[in-house]
Design a protein around this nucleic acid. Sequence first.
RNA 1: GAGGACGUUGGCAAGCGGUCAAGCCGCCAGACUUUCAAUCUGGAAAUCGCGGGUUCGAAUCCCGUCGUCCUUACCA
Length: 479
Amino acid sequence: MLRVRFAPSPTGFLHIGGARTYIFNWLFARQKQGTMVLRIDDTDVERNTEASRQSIFEGLRWLELPWDELYSQSERSALHREAAGAILAKGLAYRDFTPLGGQAEEGEKDRSGAPWLCNPGQREISREESDRRAAAGEPFVVRFRVPRETVAEVRFGDAVYGGQGRSTGDIEDFALARSDGAPTYHLASCADDADLRISHIIRGQDHLTNTFKHVLIFEALGVKPPEFAHLPLLLAPDGAKLSKRRHGQVVSVTAYREAGFLPHAFINFLSLLGWSPKDNREILTRQELIELFSLDNINRSNAVVSFQEGVADWPDPKAMHLNGQHLRALAIDDLLPYVEAELRAADLWTGPDPAWFRATVDLIRSRYTTLKDFSRRGVAYFSDRFEMEPTALERLNALGARQLVAELGERLAATEEFTEQSVEAQLRALAAERGVKAGVIINAARAALTGQSVGPSAFAVFRAVGRERAIARLQAAGC
RNA sequence: GAGGACGUUGGCAAGCGGUCAAGCCGCCAGACUUUCAAUCUGGAAAUCGCGGGUUCGAAUCCCGUCGUCCUUACCA
C-alpha cells in the first residue's frame, strides 16, 4: 500500500514551494491509489504559530486536493521519546553532556578545517556513567552514534537524483533529542514516517543531504527506509530561494487565490515547475495530471518562478496564461460557482436569473484571465456601479456619437422586440440614415453599456445587459 | 572551509553522440474582427556557463574551471 505525506512545519504561511510538494505527493498518491497523509511537523514549539497552521489548512483546502489522514507531531511525542530511548538502548546513540553553547561560545563557527563530527570524549562515556549522570539530573542531548568504524559510506537511491552516497566521516553526530527532552526534527520525522508506514518521501531537495541521517535513523529503528524522491527547489528571479521577507506575498498560496486564480490552474502551473510530461502538453486537467505524473519525469535543476520583483506582486505570466486557458476551457457550470464566490466577495451578487448568469459568464469569460476580472472588468454586467473608462469616453466623443447613441436608446425604447438581431437591425438602420459607419455607433454603444471600449460583440452585450438597463445607459450617455 | 546537487534563449522546458538545438509563456508584426481577447501565420531572441579532451561527429561522454543553490544547529 503506497503512502505519502506532506509534512510542513507551521512556522510561516504556506508558500508555493510547499504547495508544489503537496501537489506532487497528492498526484502520486491518487495515481497509485495510495494514501495522502498531512502531518503538521510542529516539534519546534518556539517558532510554531496557530496562524501559520491555519494558513496551511486554508491554502491546501483552496487547492481542492483533499488529504486522507491528518496528524500533528506534537501529539505524538510519546512515540518520539520511545524511539530515542530505543536507539539509545541499542547503543546506537549516546548522551552528550557538553553544556549548551559549548560549540558556539567562540562566536563565529570555525569554517576553515574539517567538519565538526562530535564533541570530544562524549562518545566514549560508559553506559554506567552516562546513566548515572543522567539520573543525577545533568542535562544532555542525545546524539546519534554515526558508525564511522564499521560503515564507510551511507547510501540510498533517490528517484530523482539517482544513487547517493556519503562517507560516514562527513556525517556529524547529529542530535536526536534536545536537552529538554524534545525530539529534533530528524528523529520525530523518521519515527513518524516509520510509524505511519510512509512508503515514499517526496520532498524538497533541501533535504537531500539530510537524508543520510534519516537512513541511519530508519536503520537504527530497525525499519527499512522508504523510497525517496527529492524535488528541485523553486527560486526567485534573482536566483535566491523564495522567502516571504525578501519577496513578499507572491510566494504565498493565498496571494494566488486572492489574485483570482482558479485552484486547478494554479495546480497546473506549479506542476510544470520541476516536472514536465515531456510531450509538449501544458494545459492539463486534473485527471490528466494524475495519469501523466511520474517521478521519472521530475527535473533535477531548480526552477525560477518569474514574478515581477519590486514592480508589484504580480504572478508569473505563464501562470496568468494558464489561468486564462482554464477559465475558457472549464465546463461553464463548473466555472459558475467560482464566479459567484468572486461576485459575492466583491458585493456584486444580486442572485440573478441562473440562465442569464450562465449565458453572461460564458459570454465574457473568453477575454478574461482571472476571476477578479469578473468583479472588475465585468462590473457593468452585474451592477450599475461602473465607471466610464477614458478609452470608452473617447468612443463616445467621436463624431457626435453621443447623439446617435441617445437616439438609438429612444428607438429601442419605442420597440418591444429586443434581440441581438432586432437591435442590430435598428442600429444599422440608424447608421445608414445618418450616413455614419455602423462601427462608430457599435463602439459607442459598447462604451455606453459597459464603460469600456473593449469587450464582446456589442449586440451580445445588449442582450447581456438587458433591455431596460441598455436603454437607460444609452440615454444617460447621450447627455 | 568541507561535502553534495545543479547550470539548454528573459522564464518554463524538450533533447540522452549524428539534419539549420523542439514546444510553451513573454516580446514584435500580420491575418481575422464593430473593439478587445481568443485563434491562426510569421519574426526577433541560445556560440547549449566557460576551457580542454575523446570522437569522422558532442548540448549529449571524460577532465578541469567558474557560478548558483543545498547541507554542515539542542530550526524544520
